[in-house]
Amino acid sequence: MADKLRAQQQLEQLQTRFIGVGHPDTTKHEWMNNIQRDSLASYIGNPSLLQHFSVALNEPQRKVRTMFIDKMIQPCGPPKEKDSEMEDA
């Protein structure tokens, strides 16, 4: 019983500390946005990956970095109507 309580407390601590971990009320759209933003931040922070993407896209590294930063605003596009209706309920 104490193990379950400890695990629950650790999960709650993670959820308050890190937004991307999610919680029971996290929508699919929020979860996908968190995953995409985390991936893009990783690509931007790793010069080798950024160079790989710039070669693959045949664009300068600065431009690829700017594209990734811009994409972090809404990585999965606007939420669907169904998701926004569920949040209101």
Rank of each mutant, 00 (worst) to 15 (best):
D70L: 12
Q15C: 06
N34C: 03
G22L: 09
D83Q: 12
R65D: 01
K82D: 05
N33Q: 09
Q15N: 07
V64H: 01
H29F: 02
S39C: 05
R6N: 09
Q61M: 13
D83C: 09
F18C: 08
I73S: 14
Y43E: 00
Q9Y: 05
V64L: 03
Q51G: 11
I35G: 01
K82C: 02
S42F: 08
H29R: 09
A2C: 07
V64Y: 00
T26V: 11
A41G: 12
F18A: 05
M1Q: 12
N58I: 01
G45L: 04
L57E: 03
T66W: 03
N58M: 02
E85Y: 09
P79D: 07
A41Y: 02
E59C: 05
M67I: 14
Q13F: 05
F53A: 09
S54H: 06
Q15E: 14
V64D: 00
R37V: 08
I69N: 03
L57A: 04
D83K: 10
L14P: 00
S54E: 03
T66G: 03
Q13K: 13
R65V: 00
S54T: 06
D88G: 04
V21K: 07
Q8W: 05
P47C: 10
E59S: 11
L50T: 09
A41I: 00
A41V: 00
M1I: 04
Q10Y: 08
T27I: 04
Q61G: 00
S39L: 10
R37N: 13
D3H: 12
H52W: 01
Q8I: 05
D38R: 12
H52L: 09
T27S: 15
N34Q: 11
